[in-house]
Design a protein around this nucleic acid. Structure first.
Lengths: 214, 214
DNA sequence: CAGAAATTTAATTAATTTTTAAATTAATTA
DNA sequence: TAATTAATTTAAAAATTAATTAAATTTCTG
């Protein structure tokens, strides 16, 4: 945070400030939402002046675009690639997706909250980007493979193949986005990604196993 | 939206304007987030002047509180009561919860997006309200009943009882919050609450039924 | 018809934010 | 080592915007 310094060019031990600034922007976006975040707030978060953000990015909009280009798109691409590398089998596909999501979330804790806020919600700042850039093809590839697997009897036929990926997102992104809330409500500091992962896998593999049915 | 009229007291056909104003506030909160919503924006949404909002509610904060008291708390209470009315059986409990959520979401389409934004996310405006007012007891009651059911062998023992309600929320609120996105991505206007409900029930009851396991 | 109620117009106040320009210091280069 | 360039801050300007208040307007009610 506050790293107040005097004016003038910094010494050669300069950390990568651009990176720090983008981190600060992500923190603010996550905490307040993209729409409600001013460059003043980002500057405060980074312990720097608004003028510097101008120097680096030009304007508020360009800064937002930089955050998208530098952080968000690569993240999605990483997930896409891991999934792409999975073989023919649906189980492998789903497993790869869940693993990729868990890895992405663990490495980028800001991601889930930002996602639910700015992609899921009407008026979200990342909606267009994601939907047009990656969403459609990504989602539809899954839908087709799910449907094919159902026909081969390798996947619960009562599921709607179009909704399954949505369910998987709901079981990964949603719990991760609320992690702080759950931990507080449950007084459970030990409740980490590992427990979450195990629980979700159990639910997906076997369902609730109710004796009487819903 | 715009219902421009001249100054002065309106005719006696007056709809319940207070209600309209609160609706407009909800719309803006949902679209832009509570923090980023000005009373000016709400006034525009309702086709009314900012001064009128003052006349009705006193201030921006009081308006927010009115939205919470008039709309959000009753909604949660309704869910709570329906769940409370469910019998001993876990299956009945879970079924009642899912039904109550689906009903609440169908009747109040703004609810899921507002929830993920303002409860789930750090800095959300409804976080404290919900967590302190209803969250803890509600959640813990579920946890205990889940754990008891597991001991009786009536519920998949590999699940984490603390995380199951989170999963259920992730399978209801999350898909509902993104409904517009999914529909657009899938070119599926027919994809409504009924399909969603059926799909989720199938997933919960039987899991994925993969041949090879995850 | 008189007074109260519901609205808008218009003005005030206040704050805030983005952006620009100038000043300062350190590094690099010739 | 002097001159230039780069990275920062300070300070100020410019623009926008928001919340709130006061006054004016119209319609209803008694």
């Amino acid at each position: 945070m506050s790293r107040r310094r005097s004016p003038g060019r910094p010494g050669r031990d300069s950390e990568d400030l651009r990176c720090t600034l983008i981190d600060a922007a992500l923190t603010c976006y996550t905490r307040e939402g993209v729409a409600a975040t001013s460059i003043k707030a980002i500057a405060a978060e980074a312990g720097v002046t608004p003028a510097l953000l101008h120097y680096y990015f030009g304007s508020r909009d360009q800064l937002r675009q930089a955050v998208i280009d530098d952080r968000i798109l690569p993240l999605i691409q990483a997930v896409q690639e891991k999934v792409h590398g999975a073989g023919e089998d649906v189980a492998a596909l789903i497993g790869a997706f869940m693993d990729a999501m868990n890895a992405a979330v663990t490495a980028n804790p800001w991601w889930p909250a930002l996602w639910v806020r700015e992609v899921l919600c009407e008026g979200g700042a990342l909606r267009e980007v994601l939907i047009e850039k990656v969403g459609r093809t990504f989602l539809q590839a899954f839908v087709q493979r799910f449907a094919a697997a159902q026909q081969r009897g390798e996947l619960n036929g009562a599921l709607d193949p179009r909704l399954l990926l949505v369910s998987l997102l709901g079981l990964t992104l949603f719990p991760a986005a609320g992690a702080a809330v759950w931990r507080k409500l449950l007084d459970a500091d030990d409740l980490g990604p590992a427990e979450q992962q195990k629980h979700t896998a159990a639910l997906l593999e076997r369902g609730l196993e109710l004796r009487h049915g819903l």
